[in-house]
């Protein structure tokens, strides 16, 4: 296990390093001169010079890259050009919305998908299975932002039971939570559909294995076989999808924020793109990438916890 942990940690570091280079090159090298790009065509030369100085653009590339990485390690993400405040604080404020939203959606989709997948697999081929899988088929075909619009139309405008958008902050937790219900549902339902399908397929595949027959020969009934043997084995492919879903949930949350006018990380990044505030974009994107890499790292570790065969190897 220690060996597996060490090797995966090494891979994690490697991925982070490579990803940071990609982000750095895309933002600071590809546009040519980031300062003129940010300020646009008509900027005064001394304004450009001041920004170049602030960004350290006269320094060699390697220095700038290390400076950026070093700063981030200390929690210094630079100063936003448009907001004139430290990017770290700006992002932290926005994460207070995006993280709970993604977490809520993940919890909701798992809570929906696991029972549905179990029922469908246990009732394979019967009417209930057909209905659940039909709904799931439709669910994975719906773009979440459009689904969000329909939710707003129904729950906020027609029935007026939930807010249509905006975020009152966490000072009133109930109001804050109410504002996140529709966005979380919009994010969670399509994900739940995918997860339920994967779980059902994995369970059916697992139930056909020889060791299930062995368990039945030992005297376990169908339910015991499902919960004691099939579920844990089926968890392995489900974990893969769950890991990828976290990445999609983070990306999806950013899009959904637009539908509900939520001041989260996504809105921050999109506004920064419009305002050409590359400093905010760079750090925001790097944070997203770190989150995705961290999730896949946790997924790898969970694999090893579930599957003893992985612990001995790389």
């Amino acid at each position: 296990m220690a060996r597996y942990l060490l090797i995966r940690s090494f891979a994690l570091m490697l991925s982070l390093l490579a990803a940071s280079v990609v982000v750095f090159v895309a933002i600071e090298v590809v546009p040519g001169d980031p300062a003129s790009y940010m300020l646009g065509m008509n900027a005064a030369p001394d304004t450009v010079a001041a920004l170049r100085d602030q960004l350290g653009l006269d320094q060699p590339l390697m220095w700038r890259y290390l400076h950026w990485i070093g700063g981030m390690l200390h929690g210094d993400f630079g100063t936003s050009y448009t907001y004139k405040v430290p990017v770290a604080g700006l992002i932290a404020d926005r994460l207070a919305l995006t993280l709970p939203l993604a977490g809520l959606a993940l919890g909701l989709s798992t809570a929906l998908a696991v029972p549905l997948g179990l029922i469908a697999a246990a009732q394979r081929g019967k009417a209930l299975d057909t209905v659940v899988m039909g709904v799931a088929q439709l669910g994975i075909s719906v773009p979440n932002f459009w689904f969000a619009m329909l939710l707003v139309l129904l729950f906020a405008l027609h029935w007026q039971v939930l807010p249509a958008g905006g975020f009152p902050g966490w000072s009133d937790p109930v109001a804050g939570l109410r504002a996140l219900i529709l966005p979380a549902v919009a994010l969670a339902l399509p994900q739940a559909a995918i997860l339920a399908r994967v779980l059902r397929a994995a369970l059916i595949e697992t139930l056909a294995q020889d060791y299930i027959r062995t368990a039945r020969a030992k005297g376990l009934n169908r339910r015991q076989t499902l919960t004691r043997h099939a579920l844990r084995n089926a968890l392995i492919p489900v974990l893969t999808i769950l890991g990828m879903q976290c990445a999609f949930l983070i990306a999806g949350a950013i899009i959904i924020e637009n539908v509900f006018y939520l001041p989260g990380l996504g809105r921050l990044i999109f506004q920064a793109i419009t305002q050409r505030d590359l400093i905010v974009v760079e750090s925001g994107v790097m944070l997203l990438v770190i989150a995705v890499i961290a999730v896949s790292f946790v997924t790898d570790l969970t694999y090893a916890l579930v599957d003893p065969r992985l612990r001995g190897s790389a």
């Binding site: 294995q209 020889d210 062995t214 599957d307």
Partner: peptide, 17 residues
């Protein structure tokens, strides 16, 4: 309990986890 059974393929007959 009263009747036990074993199968052909030992490589897959046991739960790997």
């Amino acid at each position: 309990d009263a009747v036990g059974m074993i199968f052909q393929e030992p490589m897959t007959a046991l739960n790997p986890l």
